[in-house]
Design a protein around this nucleic acid. Structure first.
Lengths: 201, 201
DNA sequence: ACCTGAACACCGTTCAAGT
DNA sequence: ACCTGAACACCGTTCAAGT
């Protein structure tokens, strides 16, 4: 069996994984298709078969990022779902998982947030939408007994997501240390529960 | 008088202004030092005299962006400062100015938010700190009669800033339309006032 | 369907040299 | 102090050709 078969067989996935590694240690600017191809042992033209251009690779990375983030959040929350008194804790755990993802995948999250969804139903748009759905069900559970209009739940979910993302970006960019990000998450969730769940039109 | 004097005289400023224009219409990825130099009528090596490398130019852009944003926010708020009953309106106006800046300078804001402040007292760090100070005095005014610890005001300011930034990034990335961004700003300010100003430890 | 390899136009960065 | 211009190493993208 030849070491270098003509068909790599798994090039797309390998490129994405190598790209994520580069992203983590050297940032998005250092991400080069040619270098990725070189390290994967294929010619520099090969990636073109899987990604039309560099930005298509970045979009694919962002989409994968959204899915991984959604999984991390759900993982952090499921352990608390049995306790009906743990509403606030659920939101806090979700925020904590988000911030944790942010600190360990800062360049990726920056890419995800900046990734424009001009094209409806592109991979980025769809993955971001899946995360939003999963955040929506979380907020719905956190609301619990109170029954609210779907439109209002949607607004609350967007607001909470925006706040958590804003806090994460402050941490990522080094404006505040991680510990203060955690404090802000505490504040955000408390204020969200106190203000939002009792004072929405 | 020669059309092309050896000393440009104002190259640094011209490069920054041209860069902002490119940023607005073609995004950060399209920003090339060589193209900037070409359009300014200087050699491709000339920018090096004012910016050590490409990222130094981006940092300078981000710093200028923070200052312009702070000015825009102060401009939006000063007209309301005479009315002592307009606390909520002040915060809302600040958020509105922020979102307006975001929609008209999306690539620049993305650059500003992503700009790392690893180096304390670099230009980015200082400009971001100036914006934070001006947000802090704004929140202090909005609190009004209530006297709070400086550390708590700082937390509230960070939280409000993070929320506004998060909403702006949702709009910039096309996740939600501008109109919904405005609705979220309404919600955010109401919840902030209702929850934060009445329920802080 | 997937990959190669040459070709093209473009970069950022460095640096000796000019004014 | 500020700018030039050659040189270097590196890109992304295109495309005919191979398997």
């Amino acid at each position: 069996m030849p070491k270098q078969p003509f068909h790599h067989g798994n090039l797309r996935t390998e490129l994405l994984e190598r790209a994520e590694a580069v992203l983590r240690v050297r940032g998005a600017d250092a991400l080069s298709l040619r270098e990725l191809a070189r390290d994967a042992g294929v010619s520099h033209g090969a990636p073109r078969s899987h990604f039309v251009d560099r930005s298509a690779l970045l979009d694919a990375l962002a989409a994968r990022g959204f899915d991984r983030l959604a999984e991390a959040i759900e993982r952090a929350v499921t352990s608390l779902q049995s306790d009906p008194e743990a509403r606030r804790e659920m939101l806090r755990a979700a925020g904590g998982a988000y911030l944790d993802f942010a600190t360990h995948n800062s360049a990726l999250l920056t890419l995800m947030v900046a990734a424009k969804a001009d094209t409806p139903s592109g991979p980025v748009h769809d993955a971001a939408a899946r995360l939003f759905i999963s955040m929506t069900t979380l907020v719905t559970k956190a609301i619990g007994d109170r029954v609210l209009d779907a439109a209002i739940i949607s607004r609350l979910t967007l607001l909470l997501s925006a706040t958590i993302q804003g806090i994460s970006s402050l941490v990522i960019s080094g404006r505040i240390p991680v510990a203060q990000g955690d404090v802000l998450l505490d504040d955000a969730v408390r204020i969200f529960v106190a203000g939002a769940l009792s004072d929405m039109p």
